[in-house]
Amino acid sequence: MPPPPPITNTIRRLRFDHGEMTQQQLADRIGMTRQTVAAIEQNKYSPSLEAAFRIAEVFGVEIGEVFQWKAEQTPGS
């Protein structure tokens, strides 16, 4: 398993801001298992772009509000 990219997310906070949505409820909304949502939330697994958009859509926010790139340096800089 490759190391996860330096991406953080605010899924946990967004879930609680949306009526304390459970991981299972979010998983059901995006067609994933609760375990996959937990792995994404803990930055153990980086979801596909489609899954990232689906998560953002559930919370009604832009994808950048859910996932943030935390790299110190970008290639070539």
Binding site: T33, Q35, A39, P47
Partner: peptide, 8 residues
């Protein structure tokens, strides 16, 4: 036998 998600 659920449909596998992307991680699975």
């Amino acid at each position: 036998d659920p449909v596998p998600d992307e991680l699975e």
